[in-house]
Simulated assay, not measured.
Amino acid sequence: MSSIQPLSHERHASLRWRRYNGYGFTATTAIAPLAAAEVGKAALALPLAFVEREGGWTLAAVLGLLPGQNLYVASNGNWVVGYVPSVFRAYPFRIGWNEAVQPMLCIDEASGLIVESGEGETFFDESGELSASVRQVSAFLHETAKSEAVLANACGQLRAAGVIEPWPITIQGENGSQQIAGLSRINETALNTLDDAAFGRFRRAGVVGVAYAQLLSMGNLSTLGELAQARAQAEAAERAKAEVKPMVMLPEDNTIDWDWSKIGR
């Protein structure tokens, strides 16, 4: 469970932070919202879907086929494909929003990466300003937040144009077939029948690129399915291993005098 707090000198000046050494903290994240600047790279490695978020629409990486499941992170914390969504790359930092809807640099105090002493980096320098490393993280997160807003605007335009439709994905589980809800895709036919004026506006605004990136990314769904199958097989093997009862072992003491005459009687 996370504990997101705004970074402040009063609360964090005496503390230190450590960099993550694996992506295990993403293991229960099935959907990762994206920023406009990363859509092209993400589409080559991950299936992307349109999702409703905070009253609007955005494009997100689909990381799992069940709630609380990320199939792209291995048990040792390694990421198994070539692209990691930017939302994960500044952990344990993130952007929050104050009451005036202004971005704030925040920290996850439950990350296990905040320490009181010992190894780690300081949040603030001797003058009380953000340290150089934290300034770098803050700049990255603020630019990412701006890019997320750009993408949300593009997705809103696609939605308003009627070219986004539900994406029916059905998976087979232990209890039969199950349809994944909440994911949407581009209706390519509707996109191609937009009039020239609307298509031209979308092309100039970069919106068409978002649409085609989502269509391209759908080919990665097969990889996600393979990862799901491999995960299910590994978990089944572990369960079977746990259910195997140990064989009755004879005592190692070879001095015991067995009475063979009574065997079988």
Rank of each mutant, 00 (worst) to 15 (best):
F88S: 01
E252W: 11
A61Y: 01
E148C: 09
L191C: 05
A90I: 03
W17I: 04
I169Q: 02
I164G: 00
N21G: 08
I4V: 14
T189E: 11
E109W: 01
A228C: 10
L183N: 02
H9Y: 14
W57S: 03
A237S: 07
S127I: 06
D108H: 07
D195G: 14
S138A: 15
R185W: 06
Y83Q: 04
N175Q: 14
G96N: 06
W97S: 10
W167V: 01
N187M: 10
D196S: 14
G118A: 10
W79K: 09
I169M: 04
P251Y: 09
G176I: 07
V134E: 00
P47M: 04
W57N: 03
S127D: 13
F199T: 06
N76Q: 15
A181G: 05
L46V: 13
E129S: 15
L34A: 04
A190C: 06
Y20N: 05
S133D: 13
G156P: 03
W167M: 06
W57H: 09
L151G: 04
L183W: 11
G56Y: 03
L66D: 10
W258A: 14
A205E: 05
Q69N: 10
E129A: 15
L34P: 01
P103Q: 10
V208D: 02
G173D: 05
A232W: 10
L216K: 04
I31K: 02
N175T: 14
W258K: 06
Q157S: 12
F199L: 15
G209P: 00
I263E: 12
A74Q: 08
M104K: 12
A211H: 00
A132R: 11
G264V: 03
